[in-house]
């Protein structure tokens, strides 16, 4: 419980996380508006979910910043591990608190995208997807330990490699972690599996590695 309170405080007092959440929501609002307009003459995909296809980048960044902030200058990771030396429980609590903090942001962002396009039924699924994506990004950044390289890796996978693989014929799309962003029933299992795998890998490295 103490660990959860400490981790929650850490997340809530990091200005970059607030800024990222705000910008992500604003970008979603702008895109939802753009889709509402554009769709009149040329449909570009499901307007309820399409804006989230872009602004999930904000959630990736959110996860990266939350995890990488431990390893930035100043050496906060030492303080963290001196105060909470049991690494596996710490890792679990970290994931849970980040999830708890992200959930409301994800819900508001998802609603901003889905409601204007009449896709209210997608809101819970989209909220869960964005929250899991944040956790996946945090897990990756926890292994990489640096914000910019982690962001390059994740953004490159989600926005360059992913679309390229998806454009090819064949069933590979259902196995990518971000298919659920545009096609929830098809990709949900992949998102959950990837996130769980990334978290497990991060837990293992966090437990084994010298700080």
């Amino acid at each position: 419980m103490n660990v959860a309170r400490a981790e929650l405080r850490k997340l809530l007092t990091l200005p970059s996380l607030r800024l990222t959440a705000l910008l992500t929501w604003a970008a979603t609002l702008l895109l939802a508006y753009a889709y509402a307009y554009a769709d009149r003459d040329a449909p570009l995909g499901d307007a309820a979910l399409a804006p989230l296809g872009y602004t999930q980048a904000g959630f990736l960044v959110l996860g990266v910043l939350a995890a990488a902030s431990e390893y930035e200058e100043g050496g906060q990771i030492h303080t963290t591990l001196l105060a909470m030396p049991r690494r596996l429980p710490l890792h679990v609590v970290k994931a849970l608190t980040l999830g708890a903090v992200t959930l409301p942001v994800a819900a508001v962002t998802a609603a901003t995208s889905t409601l204007p396009a009449g896709g209210a039924t997608w809101t819970p699924a989209a909220t869960a997807y964005l929250t899991l994506t944040t956790l996946l990004a945090a897990a990756v950044a926890g292994v990489v330990r640096r914000a910019v390289p982690a962001a390059i890796l994740l953004l490159g996978l989600y926005f360059i490699v992913g679309p390229l693989l998806r454009a090819r014929p064949g069933g590979i799309a259902a196995y990518l972690p971000d298919t659920a962003a545009l096609d929830p029933p098809r990709g949900a299992a992949a998102t959950v599996a990837w996130t769980a795998a990334a978290l497990a890998l991060a837990a293992l490295t966090f437990h084994r590695r010298d700080a």
Partner: peptide, 24 residues
């Protein structure tokens, strides 16, 4: 580095945000 990287990479996707804006 994160802000420009995010902006530019998501804008280099197949249907870029800029392209979407040209529809408006």
């Amino acid at each position: 580095g994160i802000v420009p990287l995010t902006l530019l990479v998501i804008n280099s996707t197949v249907v870029s945000v800029s392209y979407l804006l040209t529809k408006i």
